[in-house]
Amino acid sequence: MFAYIVRRLLYAIPILIGVNLLTFTLFFVVNSPDDMAASQLGDKYVTPEAIANWKQKNGYDKPLFLNSQAAGVGQVTDTIFFDKSVRLFAFDFGRSESGRDITTDVATRMWPSLAVALPTFLVGIGVNICVALMVVMFRGTRLDRGAVFVFVALMSISYLFYIIGGQFLVAKTWRLVPISGFHTEGQVWKFLVLPVLVGVVAGIGAGARWYRTLFLEEANQDYVRTARAKGCSELSILFRHILPNALIPILTGVVVLIPSLFMGSLLIESFFGIPGLGSYMLDAINSQDFAIVRSMVFIGSILYIVGLLLTDISYTWADPRVRLS
């Protein structure tokens, strides 16, 4: 098991290098260092000297990938790419183009993201399982088919509409909660109610439908028939047999998402003004802040890999027959 984890983590290194190379290439095809300097320095009176200065100060005055002027290994190491990406592996994200320390920003912005994403995730799973169990009780009836139709209809509404509708009704028309914002002094929860509610409601369609499929699959298994033949009550079948067995696919399906909770949700955060990592990313895209984009891609990739690893581990935990090798 331990050896397996170590091996998986080592396997992550080439992936992260690949990720970095890709983002780097993409970004610098779009933006030359000169562009970055110009957009960071503002609109008026940008002189070539100022640009050269900025590049030197921020370490963009070297060749991108290959330094033909340097000798030996320096050809590869004395470049922007090497400089900027080696540090990432030591989790030193450096400074954003506007001069802020990215590691500090990420560390502070992670918590608001979690504050929204975690409740949404947990409440979402709870609500979805409840709804799905209720529907499964009526499997094969007209009620079941109707519920599935409703799920599909809920799935078919764009996320944007859930957010806009939620803000418009709950916050603007009914004035029940603040429409957006976030601060840690005082009642944080009142800012979280609406985003969490929107997140949960938007997720019901897809989530409940998925859980329903899982439960139904289990309900058609032989052991359920046996249990019923033994005279177990419907409820005990549902809770003693179906739920625990369906938990395995549920667990392995959701575990992969847990690390990505740290990244937050791009849309929810920017609509609700939550200063998390999601809105951080969106701002970075809009202001073309390469340092942040690169760091966030890096973090995102690590979290994804961790998610995969956790999934594998959760398999062994949930189902002892599975061995990792």
Partner: peptide, 15 residues
């Protein structure tokens, strides 16, 4: 694995 580990939105935006 490399491609899918990049947050999709960032990849799309850059492209």
């Amino acid at each position: 694995t490399t491609l899918s580990s990049i947050p999709g939105i960032l990849l799309i935006a850059a492209s």
